[in-house]
Nucleic acid binder design. Structure first.
Lengths: 338, 338
DNA sequence: GCGCGACTCTATAACGTTATACAGACGATG
DNA sequence: CATCGTCTGTATAACGTTATAGAGTCGCGC
């Protein structure tokens, strides 16, 4: 079971160090010995003990991706991309679930996994700039999502304000005037929800539409039930909206369901736009118009940048990258004909 | 940054071994020294280096959950449960994605992660009994899902045949006669798809309905697009079905979409039943009737059993556990009134 | 024939932890 | 007063790896 370098060394009749050199290619080894060692490795089925290697090298080969909800399809899709990118670069990516819990985010930031993990990709939702700044330097950190800016770490995000603009402009272009927003959060001011609200307000202004605070619905979380609840509240308003822009696709799908149950037609009575472009929105009834971030780009960039930091090949200043997005029109805002 | 036992020992003026004993409570330590050591630990913010501990103890405290698709909500929901259960027991669970790839499953079985992981929970889809049997004993293994039986490992699953029965009986009870199945796989004979087909056939027979091979649709995978494609094929048949039982909820949702696009009414023209009870099915239009496995039970049981094996407290014979399920009626088979 | 670099390979000291064996002090016991 | 056990604490050898320093051997130029 436990076959170690020592076993190989004995079998091949060479020293420990030589085997190590063959396995790692760290130093040149004569062709004859190399072959003998390689044969022993194959025969005994040796694989290096990563724990020991870590202890010696100070690196584990593990990186973590910490997200606020594992079963938000957006993060699941992102994770799948990140995992394969990490694998391609020789790292193993482990998922960590913060459950949108402030303490969990702080613990990760503080290095609770410090000895296990070479670096961390974090999607923060409950912590802000100060908390990140107060981090006592640990392993490399890459931020994704839009919560925190102006910190000395790499940061990958879409331009939330611009994304909101695009959504609102689209709704205005199809003739909507009373446009609601679902998914504002009570606290947090550099949070992405806040940014999306800001984009919403700016775009309304640009279109010459009034900003009606009653059309901005708060939610505690960002799941389907939250969208459904908020939509019901909006419908209970004396003068309900004729369009809804949701914090994300899950919220939008909750809203869709509330509309259907209440007997409203989508998009005729109310048009709906989400963000994330999860697969579910391509199969819902009606299908969901959405702002599609480039998940592939986000996942790959985050992993590459983190690994570059870990390996120290790139000591350049931290960079904030804004990845592209596009508007995907589907039934919930009327297809071509409508 | 790197504060080790040695630093604590110096600070507290005791030996390395004593600090270790305080930290682990392995041996009694005098009250006075204990306090001095504890204080040093707190002041310097020591946390043990898990790699080194592993090297010494032979355990990492990591367990893996390997699933065929990370972004199938069923597995995402299961993962969330398993992660918190593992955390409660002092383990960290890492997700592994086999991508329904035979080689990936074999690699895990063969112990590709052997040095990193204390144990593995695997949901196999491409390998069968023989492959599992040929495993050269490695770390403990718990199987979930329904692919493989009669192997010397713990195995947690629902009774697929019984689940299929329940679904078909329900469809028969609401008056359906031409019931299709979507999600048969070409190969594999102990695979869960096969078992579900068997339950489908048996239940048809029990209800006195004929088995029509043309109503069994094959799919390459088990996602929304597969369900959609298969449903279209069924609709193209001269005499289409009046009900569909799908391999899982995702496939069912794909079928739902195909039906909607083709202008069929659900459940009036065609009723649909899935398996998994993912949240998406509670918000789809129409909402989806489904066989709901007890995900909480599955996740917790799998983790507990694996950890019991790892810690050797339970050397009893491997056990196959069938967890309960129930039928959840929703709109896709007609609600109470229909 | 001697010195020197180039080329292979080896011996060994870490990395941070835990388990084992042992040492010293102190009462109690014969 | 010798003997024994108990109670604390320490020294040290692993665990499997890699990096460093160094030891041979060979060929080549002077």
């Amino acid at each position: 079971m436990a076959v170690s370098l020592k076993d190989i060394a004995e079998r091949a009749g060479v020293s420990l160090a030589t085997v190590s050199n063959v396995v790692n290619g760290y130093r040149p080894v004569g062709e004859r010995t190399r072959q003998r060692v390689q044969q022993a490795v194959d025969e005994l089925g040796y694989s290096p003990n990563l724990g020991a290697r870590h202890l010696r090298r100070g690196r584990t080969g593990l990186i973590a991706l910490a997200v606020p909800e594992l079963n938000n399809p957006y993060f699941a899709e992102l994770a799948e991309i990140a995992i394969s990118e990490a694998a391609a670069l020789g790292y193993t990516l482990v998922m960590e679930n913060t459950a949108a819990d402030r303490d969990a985010e702080l613990a990760l930031l503080g290095g609770s996994r410090r000895h296990i993990i070479d670096g961390l990709i974090l999607s923060p939702v409950r912590i802000g700039r100060e908390e990140v700044l107060s981090r006592t330097a640990g392993s490399p950190l890459v931020l994704i999502g839009e919560g925190v800016y102006d910190v000395p770490h790499d940061h990958i995000a879409i331009d939330n304000v611009a994304a909101s603009h695009a959504a609102i402009q689209h709704l205005v272009a199809i003739g909507r005037r009373r446009i609601a927003f679902i998914g504002a959060t009570p606290g947090g001011d550099r949070q992405s929800a806040h940014l999306r609200v800001r984009g919403y307000r700016e775009a309304l202004a640009a279109a010459g539409l009034p900003y009606r605070p009653r059309l901005v619905a708060r939610t505690d979380a960002f799941g389907r039930p939250d969208g459904m609840r908020a939509m019901r509240e909006l419908l209970a308003l004396g003068d309900p909206p004729d369009a809804v822009f949701a914090y994300n696709d899950l919220v939008a799908i909750g809203a869709l369901r509330a509309l259907t149950e209440a007997g409203h037609r989508v998009p005729r009575d109310v048009a709906v736009v989400g963000i994330d472009d999860i697969e579910e929105g391509r199969f819902s009834t009606p299908t969901l118009t959405t702002i599609a971030p480039d998940k592939r780009e986000i996942g790959r960039l985050a992993v590459r940048r983190l690994i570059a930091r870990i390996e120290g090949t790139q000591v350049a200043a931290p960079l904030t990258v804004q990845t592209p997005f596009r508007l995907v029109r589907r039934e919930s805002t009327g297809t071509a004909g409508e």
